[in-house]
Structures are given as structure tokens and as C-alpha cells.
Amino acid sequence: MKSHETLTLIEQITRNDGSSYYEIANMVQNGRAEKAAMKGLIKEVRIIQLNIPRSSSVIKYEQYVNEHFTMPGEDFDEFPEWTKTPEIQKVVDQILHENHVA
């Protein structure tokens, strides 16, 4: 089943091993990450920027996410990290650059 998410924010997720990464997400996904942190599945999540501009890069990443991933339900016991192809990682890096995060 495909998702139909609109991505509107940048968050930083810290894994339990202390390493971290940036993700382009929305408030619902951020809520899932907050719950994952409370369950100990990740160390923490914090919003870096709200209401990011809807650039062509954001639209491209949004299409990728909606094609390849589904939103976890409210009762989950793992927090999967979205895998990115090298091409899609470049798109994410461009979004971070556009928003002065990288």
C-alpha cells in the first residue's frame, strides 16, 4: 500500500548508538518518531525546521517516500530508517542545503 504523505519539516533523529541523521518528514511522522523515542527504539528526535518550502527536491523525495514506504501504525515495535539510494540521498542533501541545514 502506498502512502500519500506531504513532507513539511526537517528533523534530526539520533539512533540508540548515538549517531544521527536528518530526515524530511511531517508532523505525523515526527509524532511516530517521538513515540519511538519514548519506547526506546531511538534515542531522540528533534525538529530542525518547520514549514519547509515545497521545492522540486521536496516533491521528488516525497514521491520516493510515498512509493517505497508506508506510515507505521500507532502500535509499532520497531522504527525503520528510510533507506535512500545514492540518487535520493543527493535529493535529501539538496533539501538540507536549500534550507540551510547542511
Rank of each mutant, 00 (worst) to 15 (best):
G40N: 05
A25Q: 04
M38C: 15
N26V: 01
R46K: 13
E44I: 08
K39T: 02
N51L: 10
A33L: 14
Q29R: 07
A25M: 06
N30V: 07
A33Y: 12
G31F: 05
S57F: 07
I24Y: 09
S57P: 00
Q49S: 14
A36M: 05
A33K: 15
K43N: 13
I52N: 06
A25F: 00
M38E: 09
M27A: 10
I42T: 03
I52Y: 05
R32H: 08
V28P: 02
N30G: 11
A25R: 02
S56I: 13
G31N: 11
N26A: 01
R46I: 03
A25K: 02
I47G: 10
N26R: 01
G31A: 07
R32L: 14
L50Y: 12
N51G: 10
Q49V: 13
S56D: 15
N51W: 02
K35L: 12
E44D: 15
R46N: 10
N26K: 01
M27K: 11
I47S: 07
V45G: 10
M27R: 13
I42K: 04
S55G: 03
Q29A: 12
N26T: 01
L41I: 01
R54G: 02
I48M: 09
S57K: 11
A33N: 15
G31S: 01
Q29V: 01
L50Q: 15
E44T: 09
G40Q: 04
N51F: 08
Q29E: 02
S56Y: 04
K35P: 02
I52W: 06
Q49E: 13
R54W: 00
E34F: 13
R46L: 04
S57L: 04
R46Y: 01
V28T: 10
